[in-house]
């Protein structure tokens, strides 16, 4: 039997303390050059152990900035687009929207990068655009799915209580679709973060830089440095979203 709990809850924020600490720890670890140098030189004794042009912390922050920008664009475009396509007024466009975002993801990101190059030029901008197109699908698809999955009886009750269509959308449909939407955002975020490693191909920065450089000069230590850092970020990002989900939807099972 669930116990009674106070109506105003502080629990949701408490759940985010652990992720915040973990982020601080990870960034601290990235700043600890000496440790990386020693570990990498132990693994690859006859190669330059650590990428020298930029510090690891710097690369990681750049990587996060690219990821964050692309994700923000995905949210700003994807969420309204999907909500509109799920409404009666946008229903006619729903198949079109679904197909467009699906196409966005079937293109290999490297190809998108190459195609985007003439339009956005050399630099992180092109990378952000490609990542944005690539990351749109999970958010749009999950938002459509989440809204479609709101139980019919709840919708009927909402209308019967006297919610206007817009009030119903804001106060009932979106909150109920939220967990599904959030897991789409989570998938997009991790996808973008991992894919952002190709950004250096068109002059973008981030943790792809040592990887691409390492591949060019056959330095496995550089590749390993970048790859491990990306993997650590991806795992932490995924876990952060899991905590966020639990914190924001206390009404779920």
């Amino acid at each position: 039997m669930p116990r009674a709990r106070p109506l105003e809850q502080s629990a949701p924020l408490n759940r985010l303390i652990a992720p915040a600490l973990a982020w601080a720890l990870l960034l601290g670890l990235f700043a600890y050059d000496d440790l990386w140098r020693r570990a990498l030189s132990a693994l690859f004794p006859d190669q330059t152990p650590l990428f020298e042009r930029q510090t690891l912390l710097n690369l990681a922050l750049e990587h996060l900035a690219i990821t964050g920008t692309a994700l923000l664009a995905v949210l700003l475009v994807g969420l309204p687009l999907a909500v509109w396509a799920a409404r009666p007024s946008g229903a006619a466009f729903r198949p079109l929207v679904e197909n467009l975002v699906a196409v966005g993801q079937t293109f290999p990101p490297v190809a998108v990068l190459a195609l985007a190059l003439p339009f956005v030029g050399f630099g992180s901008g092109g990378a952000v655009l490609a990542l944005f197109l690539y990351g749109l699908l999970p958010v749009v698809r999950n938002t459509l799915e989440g809204l479609a999955a709101v139980p019919q009886d709840v919708l009927e009750a909402a209308s019967g209580m006297g919610y206007s269509p817009l009030q119903r959308l804001w106060r009932v449909e979106i909150p109920l679709a939220f967990p599904v939407v959030l897991s789409g955002v989570r998938a997009s975020a991790v996808l973008i973060l991992a894919t952002a490693t190709v950004a250096p191909l068109i002059g973008g920065g981030g943790l792809g830089v040592p990887i691409v450089a390492g591949l060019a000069v056959s330095n496995l230590a550089f590749v390993t440095e970048g790859a491990i850092a990306v993997a650590l970020l991806a795992v932490l990002l995924d876990w952060t979203f899991a905590r966020l989900e639990a914190a924001l939807t206390p009404w779920r099972v």
Binding site: D153, A158, M161, G162, S164, V172, W251
Partner: peptide, 24 residues
């Protein structure tokens, strides 16, 4: 219609409580 509905109590078989809201 919205004002009309706010003035009428409505109960359905499947109840249709809002899952994301507390009982209150």
């Amino acid at each position: 219609p919205e004002e009309l509905r706010r003035g009428i109590g409505y109960v359905i078989q499947s109840i249709g409580l809002f899952p994301h809201m507390s009982v209150l």
